[in-house]
Write a protein that binds this DNA or RNA. Structure first.
Lengths: 192, 192
DNA sequence: TATATTCGCTAACAGTTGTTAGCCATGAGC
DNA sequence: GCTCATGGCTAACAACTGTTAGCGAATATA
């Protein structure tokens, strides 16, 4: 835990992540956000152009982290099973490092305004497709069962994205174990 | 598709489900909801006591359906693998029959006011525990691998709850196939 | 020391929020 | 035909929305 005193801008950012996650972007007013930070609402505008600007910074920052983590994990060339596992670990690691912000990324992106909304959707689709390519490669190569790759991708993503709830509601569980366990479950199945 | 002309109350309900799902409970005003229905905002109050009342009806109606479907599926006594599959199919079937409303149930419940909020959380927890019991029974009995049952339950729920996206964004896919495919993936795994 | 920038503040804006009061037309039951 | 409930409507409420203008103190730069 860093003990550096955060800048006001960082304080606004982190408080926004916390509040947007807890109660939703639309339900949080600038005055409430400001009160939680310990300043007055108009002071926020010394650091962010608008409420949308705040949301945009959060969402696109997380998006960037997902892409970077994916690229790094992709470089390690492995057999499909190991590769998917690597990608899943990278994905979970981004969530675990940004517990509140990633929830905002998943649940509040629809409040982005154009043209950022379209931008965001495009990036999300790209990311999904990168995952699906890795899955389909494994199917073609014979390591994976031949299934609807979209269904598989959705099952993987939604399982991984439950990381927040697992880390928040549970007996402490190491981040790496979550990815490892979910990967094993999805790869080898629950049946003995 | 039924061609019965719906009552105004039903119209409000269905329109609310659609709008709350699309843009979130907090972002939809009574005037916008009314406009979409084709009436004026105050007329809504002839049918619902408040905005919260509307959300409450939607959320608790879906909760009830989940419980009922679970109970019916539970009666058919089977081996753990078949049983989980039955429960999953029942769960997906509720989602498929209430595509918009179930999304509201999943994503907008936090806007419920007390004491209904606590009520809701309790019911959700009960439902989760019923599923986990079925999973743990399978583990004890030796049919399933011994894993963290909360993690397994979360993976199952989040995968099943992706049904909405699968039915909406995809080439048409039969509801039963979704549950069947997800069940097979989670039970037998992706690996060949 | 003079100047410019940063960053807080208060006051205020126009528009929107959920909701209530109260009026009027329709149609059912007596 | 009279009465009453139903379910629309308009007008209005106080509170709240995101945001801007503009002021003043502190800090950094020259």
């Amino acid at each position: 835990m860093s003990t550096t005193t955060l800048s006001t801008k960082d304080n606004i950012r982190h408080t926004a992540e916390k509040l947007f996650r807890e109660r939703g972007y639309a339900a949080i007013g600038m005055r409430e956000l400001a009160r939680e930070v310990g300043i007055e609402a108009p002071s926020i505008y010394n650091h962010y152009k608008s409420k949308d600007d705040l949301l945009r910074e959060i969402c696109f920052d997380i998006a960037e982290q997902f892409f970077k983590a994916f690229e790094i994990a992709e470089r390690i060339h492995e057999k499909p099973g190991k590769k998917i596992k690597q990608l899943m670990k990278a994905h979970v690691s981004v969530i675990a490092r940004n517990l509140e912000a990633s929830e905002v990324f998943f649940n509040e992106w629809m409040f982005l305004q154009e043209p950022h909304l379209s931008d965001f959707k495009k990036q999300r689709y790209e990311y999904e497709m990168k995952f699906r390519e890795a899955i389909e490669a494994g199917m073609k190569q014979g390591s994976f069962k031949k299934m609807n790759s979209k269904l598989v991708a959705f099952a993987i993503f939604s399982s991984l994205n439950a990381t927040y709830d697992l880390l928040k509601n549970n007996e402490p569980m190491a981040e790496e174990n979550i990815a490892e366990d979910i990967a094993n479950l999805l790869l080898k199945g629950l049946k003995e």
